[in-house]
């Protein structure tokens, strides 16, 4: 299951971000960028044989632009809660569409998206078994998969 999720992740992220947010992200390789400017959200995917959390870290300025466009606001007035809400919704759509592709038999259950960390704690993908980097002119989105099943996702 973990392998299936990884195989489909990039296509699903592109579909969600392009269709709904008009953001075009490109996969990148290399070291994860370090920044205090990241906001995090996670969605747990739970099943009897496999469970994981998809973790999304996005640069605040990327979310600021998406939220402003999406909600019809000026960028200057977009607050932290609105940026977090947009990232949670991105996570929800990505996780939901991944589950649709990887689990047509409905063995996996999708959790409610949550905010990772808080404004005082830097979020990171430490401990995630898979990590992906996506970049656009507007900023960077990092995606990590944290294995919660303890079975290696088989």
């Amino acid at each position: 299951m973990l392998e299936k999720i990884c195989q489909n992740l990039t296509n699903v992220i592109s579909e969600v971000l392009e269709t709904m947010f008009f953001i075009f992200l490109e996969p990148k390789s290399g070291a994860l960028p370090k920044s205090a400017d990241f906001i995090g959200a996670g969605v747990v995917i739970k099943g009897s044989d496999f469970s994981c959390e998809l973790e999304f870290l996005a640069q605040s300025r990327l979310l600021q632009q998406i939220a402003a466009d999406f909600m019809g606001l000026d960028q200057e007035v977009v607050n932290l809660a609105q940026r977090q809400d947009v990232l949670k919704e991105i996570g929800n759509m990505v996780a939901g569409n991944l589950v649709n592709i990887c689990d047509p038999e409905v063995r996996l259950e999708l959790g409610i998206p949550t905010v990772l960390g808080d404004s005082l704690t830097a979020v990171s993908l430490d401990g995630c078994v898979e990590k992906f980097i996506y970049a656009s002119d507007e900023g960077v989105l990092l995606v990590g998969i944290r294995n919660l099943s303890g079975t290696g996702g088989q």
């Binding site: 939220a67 999406f70 909600m71 019809g72 809660a81 609105q82 809400d85 947009v86 949670k88 919704e89 929800n92 409610i112």
Partner: peptide, 12 residues
């Protein structure tokens, strides 16, 4: 919808 941004875009 529990997402305020999603409610906003649907309303729009």
């Amino acid at each position: 919808d529990d997402s305020m941004s999603m409610r906003a875009i649907v309303k729009k």
